[in-house]
Amino acid sequence: MNVFRLAGDLSHLLAIIILLLKIWKTRSCAGISGRSQILFALVYTTRYLDLFTNFISLYNSVMKVFFISTSCATIYLMYVKFKATYDHNHDTFRIGFLLIPVTILGLLINHDFTPLEVLWTFSIYLESVAILPQLFMVSKTGDAETITSHYLFCLGLYRALYIFNWIYRYYFEGFYDLIAIVAGVVQTVLYCDFFYLYVTRVIKGKALKLPA
């Protein structure tokens, strides 16, 4: 565990707390892509199956359980409790376009052709693109609530911090995982446009409106 890794995990944790608080306090999931949330739930459930096979640390297990349970809770809030506020007209990204290639890639390029490893790899690839329905939704409506943009910023920052963690681990532990690194870089690059808008607008107290 290094400082980048810890900061990344905390940023990830904060993103999820912001999202749940936004939905709970405003009693609304307007502006949130249910499709991205389904993909994230799929990411966590397929990656953290190792909870049942090997124990790493209490920190590790607690975080994994947290990510799985909060992603299921988010889906419950969006599709059951606050269903009426779900903006499905703007949430139209076809997730099959992501799921099919990611499944094929997971089957072809993995560390080990075993169910657990293929699912782990699938999860890494899927996570890198899971935000696309959400970014598509923001670009379609042309804006995002400030709280939603804080959520997106923390979620994007988490993987960017992991890149520094991987650089650190490469130099100090001689460890690197090419699958995670390539997917993590792709994931971070997808947020770049959003990061630019966040820094130039939201930080200065303006709403996140996309240029026409």
């Binding site: 995990d9 790493i56 640390s57 975080m63 560390h111 782990w120 532990e173």
Partner: peptide, 10 residues
């Protein structure tokens, strides 16, 4: 081993 190092990350 290496798999454990990967699975340590979240």
């Amino acid at each position: 081993g290496e798999a454990l190092m990967r699975h340590d990350e979240l």
